[in-house]
Amino acid sequence: MIEFRDIYKIYNEGEAENEVRAVDGISFFIGRGEFVGIVGASGSGKSTCMNIIGCLDVPTRGQYLLNGTDVSTMSEKQLAHVRNRELGFVFQQYNLIPKLTILENVELPLLYKGIGQSERRELSFRALEKVGLADRVKKYPAQLSGGQQQRASIARALAGNPPVILADEPTGALDSKTGRDILEFIKKLNEEDGTTIVLITHDPSIAEECPRVLKIHDGKIIDDIRKQDIK
C-alpha cells in the first residue's frame, strides 16, 4: 500500500555546513488496513515523512510506491490527483476554510474530483452524519468548537472515500478528553471501514493506542513495533 524504498530528503545537499538530512534513508511498508503511528520528537523528520507520504513533497532520492505506483517522480498535477483520490488529510489546526460553511468545506475534495453538485451534497452530508455533525452543516468553522471542527475535517477527509487517511497530530490542539474522542473515532474508521490510517504524533499516550508504531529519530527509523507481535 504505502512503501518507502530508501527515501532521502536532503536540503542544501552538497553544502557541507548547511546540509540538512531531514529524512535519511528510510524504508518501510504499510499494508492495506493498517493503523500506524509515526512517532518522533520535533525535528526528527516525521513531518517531512508525512509530507512525502501525503504527496505534498517529493523525496530527493528513493522510491515511494503508493498502491504500487511510483509517485516520487510525478508532476504537480499528477500529485494533485493522487492527493485527491488516494489520500485524506486531517491536520492539527483543522485547516477548514473559514469563509465556507462546514458542508462546503467537506465538499471541496469532491469538487476537485469533478463530482456534480447533487452527488457532492449527498456524499458530504453522509460524511458529516458519520462524524455526528449533521445538524451543523450550515455553520461556519468559527461557530464550532475545536472538537467539532476536527470532526468536520475528518468528514472532509472521509468524503471522497480515500483508501488512506493521514492524520498529522490530530489531537494536538484539543483537550485530552476531546482528543480521546477523536482518536476513538479514527480507530473506529480503521476497524469498521478498513481505512488505512497513518497518524503522526509526538505524544506517547496517543502512540500507545496505535497497533503499529514507527519511531523516527534524526531522519532514521529506530524502531518498528507491532503490538500483535508482542501478544
Binding site: 501525503g54 505534498l56 504537480e76 498535477k77 494533485a80 490527483h81 492527493r83 485527491n84 483520490r85 488529510f89 485547516n95 477548514l96 476554510i97 471541496l108 475534495p109 476537485y112 474530483k113 472532509r156 471522497g160
Partner: peptide, 12 residues
C-alpha cells in the same frame, strides 16, 4: 495550501 492538499491542481 488547503485546497492543494485536498487535490486542487495548479490549473484549478
Amino acid at each position: 495550501g488547503i485546497r492543494k492538499a485536498l487535490g486542487a491542481t495548479p490549473w484549478d
